[in-house]
Design a binder for these strands. Structure first.
Lengths: 188, 188
DNA sequence: GTCTATATTGCGATAGAC
DNA sequence: GTCTATCGCAATATAGAC
């Protein structure tokens, strides 16, 4: 792996663990096994390197989510698959956690990949809910966009509950609760 | 307001805006209008001051939530009141945001008030769901603990969606979606 | 109790040798 | 391209005057 690659990968790990304000160039360099010069040769500085790392993490997460949401099964089953896919719950969401970072939120550039990724997933789920309605799996009274926001929020908030408690139990409970509310009508 | 009070209040504001790793003693002192000596006279250091601030914020949030959850109305109405109470959505949750802070999570002492507050609210909502079931307002197939986790997660995750988008719209959509799923059965 | 002065360490970036 | 050396400044804390 090239030095630039190792810098990006180290930054991704640290952004996930400690966020942007909690991640120092020094820590990145130590993890990547590189010196100061390498970083400033390949990147303009910390924000530039972080942007590359955030973009990659966001793209990866979007791909992972869409693989499940576009996979096999009924709309309900695909939403269920999205909600229950394996996650390292206590680590939190590498994209969502960035929204709690003041410097990410203050920067139009750093926030953009976060916004776009979450938005894309939300839209994909909204569309699935509408498909489910056409098939009679979900009631016609539901608003696809609103349900999609609830689904994504339950995941993102599940991480908060789990990390607060130091246990993934609450994440699983939140997902289970939502699935029980979403469960297809017997007529479905 | 005493110097110690001003230090705690300034710390609360900064923890909300920037988290623990993003908040420096210098910034606290500037906001409080105090010198280095005052802080180290009243508190053992940054962690000690942060603990006082977190405890107060957690206690306040718990009281605010319980005031609504123990207020008037049916179980559904009280959960609705909790979900729709006025919030400064783009600022995020002053308690929940701390779960994304590596140093808060690493410290048993700093995490405890966060854990206890979220847990208390969750338990109160779980109990409300069970009351609603006894009154036939919610279906007997629901699990109170799971629904409570979904409710709290929707709020916490709603902040994530809103901050990602730079607009409170998604928070409101998530809440609306959840309320539509929770809506009392017509028979209720 | 509060202040200023100071110590030590690390941050984020630059310079320039190799 | 990568390294070490260095810069200017802030983080966290201590010392000691007032």
């Amino acid at each position: 792996m090239s030095t630039a690659e190792r810098l990006i990968e180290s930054t991704r790990e640290l952004l996930w663990e400690r966020g942007y304000v909690g991640t120092s160039p020094k820590a990145i360099l130590e993890r990547a096994g590189a010196g100061q010069g390498s970083m400033y040769h390949h990147f303009k500085g910390k924000p530039d390197l972080a942007l590359a790392a955030i973009r990659r993490t966001a793209d990866e997460m979007r791909a992972t989510a869409e693989r499940v949401l576009d996979g096999p099964g009924t709309p309900y089953e695909r939403i269920e698959a999205y909600l229950t896919r394996e996650r390292d719950v206590l680590r939190g969401c590498p994209v969502g956690r960035l929204t709690m970072d003041p410097e990410v939120i203050a920067s139009q550039e750093l926030r953009a990949p976060v916004d776009e990724t979450i938005d894309r997933i939300r839209e994909r789920i909204a569309h699935l809910v509408e498909e489910g309605q056409e098939q009679g799996q979900f009631g016609p009274e539901l608003d696809g966009e609103a349900i999609a926001a609830t689904v994504v929020a339950t995941v993102q908030g599940g991480y908060v509950l789990a990390r607060a408690a130091g246990s993934p139990t609450a994440f699983d409970a939140g997902v289970r609760g939502l699935l029980s509310l979403l469960a297809p009508r017997p007529a479905g």
